[in-house]
Deep mutational scan, measured.
Amino acid sequence: GPGLTDLFKTEKAAVKKMAKAIMADPSKADDVYQKWADKGYTLTQLSDFLKSKTRGKYDRVYNGYMTYR
């Protein structure tokens, strides 16, 4: 089956995709945050998933999740 690194890459891609969806349409934020909360994502995990070469690119999404939880 898929190894943990593959799983991480898949999760990371999914999280980034959802983060971009929030940035494009902030009204989606609560739905996405709820999904992440259901998956039990911690802020540390989210921070790892949303690492970007562009500093602060996903800060709004991260901060939103922090206040959501």
Rank of each mutant, 00 (worst) to 15 (best):
A24S: 08
T5L: 12
Y58C: 02
T10G: 08
D6H: 10
A21M: 13
S27V: 05
K35I: 13
K20A: 13
K39G: 04
W36I: 02
L46E: 00
D48Y: 12
K53M: 06
M18I: 03
M18H: 05
K9A: 10
V32I: 13
D25W: 04
K57Q: 09
L50N: 00
L4E: 12
M23V: 05
T54P: 15
M66L: 14
K17D: 07
T10F: 10
D38L: 10
A14G: 06
F8V: 09
K35H: 11
G3R: 05
Q45M: 11
S52D: 15
P2I: 11
E11T: 08
T44S: 12
K20R: 14
L50V: 03
Y62D: 01
Y65A: 01
R60A: 14
K12Q: 15
M18A: 13
Q45E: 08
V32Y: 07
F49T: 02
K9D: 13
L50D: 01
T67I: 14
D59N: 08
Y65W: 03
L43M: 10
K35W: 08
G64R: 03
K39I: 09
K20V: 07
G1Y: 11
T42L: 03
P2Y: 05
K28H: 09
L46N: 01
Y33I: 01
G64N: 04
G3K: 07
S47E: 10
K12A: 14
F8R: 08
M66D: 06
A24C: 13
D31Y: 10
K20M: 11
K20G: 06
R69P: 03
V15K: 00
M23E: 03
Q34F: 05
T54S: 09
D38A: 13
V32P: 01
V61K: 00
T10P: 07
Q45P: 00
M66C: 11
K20H: 11
F49H: 02
P26F: 07
K16D: 02
K16C: 06
S27C: 11
D48R: 15
K39C: 12
F49S: 03
K35M: 14
G64I: 01
T44M: 14
S52Y: 07
A14H: 10
D25R: 03
Y41F: 07
G40F: 03
P26C: 07
A13Y: 09
F8A: 10
K12I: 05
A19R: 01
Y68L: 02
K17G: 07
G64Q: 03
